[in-house]
Design a protein around this nucleic acid. Sequence first.
DNA 1: CTGAAAGCGCTTACAG
DNA 2: CTGAAAGCGCTTACAG
Lengths: 340, 340
Amino acid sequence: MKYTIEDVAREAGVSITTVSRVINSNYPVKKETRKKVEAVIERLGYQPNPLASGLIRNRTFCLGVLVPGITNMFFTEVVYGIEKYSKNLGYQVYLNNSEGDAEWERNNITKLVGRLVDGIIVMDPQTENMRSGFFEEVSKKIPLICVNGYNENMEVNFVLSNEEKGTRDAFDYLFSLRHKKIAFVRGGNSYSYDLKEKIYREYMDVAGMEPVILNTQDGNSTDVVENVAQCISDLYNKNNPVLRDTTAFFTCNDLMATGVINGCRAIGLDVPEDVSVIGFDNIILSQMTRPKITTVDQNMRMLGEHAAQRIIKLIEKKETRCANQMIDTKLILRESCKSL
Amino acid sequence: MKYTIEDVAREAGVSITTVSRVINSNYPVKKETRKKVEAVIERLGYQPNPLASGLIRNRTFCLGVLVPGITNMFFTEVVYGIEKYSKNLGYQVYLNNSEGDAEWERNNITKLVGRLVDGIIVMDPQTENMRSGFFEEVSKKIPLICVNGYNENMEVNFVLSNEEKGTRDAFDYLFSLRHKKIAFVRGGNSYSYDLKEKIYREYMDVAGMEPVILNTQDGNSTDVVENVAQCISDLYNKNNPVLRDTTAFFTCNDLMATGVINGCRAIGLDVPEDVSVIGFDNIILSQMTRPKITTVDQNMRMLGEHAAQRIIKLIEKKETRCANQMIDTKLILRESCKSL
DNA sequence: CTGAAAGCGCTTACAG
DNA sequence: CTGAAAGCGCTTACAG
């Protein structure tokens, strides 16, 4: 910027110390003096240099946000919540995309720390980095929050949506529609896939059914839609006996649900007439497919807002206690499931 | 961060000047000295404080990016391209969301300038701010690029996709399918809507048809899907004579196309059997609807990459010449259009 | 309530 | 090839 604090001080006939006090209102300043200084600031359009103040205060009013895939609507919605909340409190966000790669995730975070952001929010942290203690290491230097990737042994702050309850709601619903032969569709390494699978196995166990699990590796990119569709139609075409009995699919996210619907369509199966599909997340896409997808709403924006609120608390109150926060999920009934 | 340049200098037994030279390799340093210093940097895990160097150099290696709606897949894809390109060159991005509000857009940009980002990319700039000369003002202080919002009288850098050609391709295609009674669906204030409407009117003129224009204000949010659907079914239900003749819709983006499809479906019209729909953008959604949407690909990622490349050139070469850059569009044939 | 001075962690002429 | 010193624009004890 053009003007410095010195210009303002000169114009106002005071010391730079006083100007600083007017700007930050952290010390008493006589009313008239304040007025005078404020007038000059206004007239000059002076903006304090954040680098200079940041250098001294060790404060940048910046938040680092990491997502594993920016084109995925799920994360976009969460980021929306984060941005909305933090903007009002004067924070700006650095958005970084790890593309679901553990090394990139580490690199990005290290850079963010180097840039002296005030805090970091990591969405869907890579399991590898959780296990290695990387996040705990970072947490010692700087406030950090993991969103949707819980590990109870970690000394890290978590903000989570209640995926367990959401998953149970989904299975209870499928069972209430008399479905028992349910296939499970998941992606690669992630806490939330593992959690859902655990619950699925539990339900299958109780029902005395054999689990049928499809694992598509790349779960966070929109490519997954195509992959799952392909996989489904391949399996049916091969006359896979297990799948042929399947009356319903539980998918770990709505992208996968869309894939299942497309795959079924490709081989002439109608959803929900021939087979039911239930998704997870409630991204905007789930309302636009045909049929519209019955799914579990993760309340992404609220998830983002909570994460932002939390990290700012950590930053400002120096609240260092590690704790978890849980956001409720909600079953959304639409068109992709039907009673047997 | 823990260590400073002084720690490194002490450990290595050299001056901080030398350490600085090793880090920036902008002056000759004896090989052995360099090795020694590098070893210490490595051992300490030293990272230079970017605030301190930024303060002196007036350089932050940060890019500000403004979008009118982060949940819109179109912008997400462009941001992906920007991020991908700029990350490799050592720049990080500040993402800001103006929510399509002109005042927010100005506020955000002012803040970004105050934060001393090295350059700013504004996507779909608000017409109001283009007219008022705001962008030209900012351009004098800092490199700035407007993506998809051209105004030939402005002394500003533009990166654009060739929406004109894309629009003509779409209409040519519809005409080749014998459609003439085409309705046009657009959003509020935006250069690209205006451009497309102009071309639409031209085609209608040549064909001797009366233009039929639906204007849904909020064109950049996913809400537009619902709004357009509602609008369509309302119009048909009111037996609007003009719309009843319509055999095809040209929509300014894929969200609107989805809205038209949903609206038609609600009133029992089949796409493409009863009516054809052509979209614009080729967002991921257009492949997931049923029918899949025939649309004009804007090559969003490339758009983003070009914008990033351009802004970095402006920053690094101090290339101040104002110029426009055009990205090709491409007609994507899918399922939502049918010959009469 | 106000100011002079030290200092945040770096870079860059200047001198050798 | 290397170092001492000034300075980037601010904040914060310290002194009054």
